[in-house]
Amino acid sequence: MRHIISILVDNEPGVLARVSGLFTARGFNIESLCVAETEKPSYSRLTLVTSGEDWIIDQIIKRFENMINVIKVVDLTESESIQRELLIARVVPTKTSRSEVLRVADIFRSNVIDVGPKSYALELTGTKDKLEAFVEILRPLGLKEVTRTGLVSIAREKKK
């Protein structure tokens, strides 16, 4: 099953290696990983997506909790949290598809963040599915390069 694990860690060198080391030790693949400072500069938040049997993930989370540099670990399920990802794509359209690219960008509510004589750079935020759909539509229109941030996620407010 797919798991989104959100880990609050000390903002120190070596912590990322410590966390990711637990996955390599078990032969697990990390599908996406996103790290940045939080509202407190001494802490970083690490959002990690992986797949595996529930009980192994459970063990890994317990190991995280035992680490000195880890403050908090949450296994966010997909239904009870909001996920977003950012994508930047470079498109080099043919003469005929130049306006079509902009139309597609408009439909997806994507912004043009760089324009050159030959190419556009487009930015898009959304869920994984939305980004993938965007990429598929741009592909025949001259898509050259895509870079994505990986998933970030936050828990929804609990319903009463």
Binding site: W55, D58, Q59, K62, R63, E65, N66
Partner: peptide
């Protein structure tokens, strides 16, 4: 004392 040693299965 170590939670990882407990049996999840």
């Amino acid at each position: 004392i170590d939670s990882t040693q407990l049996d999840p299965l």
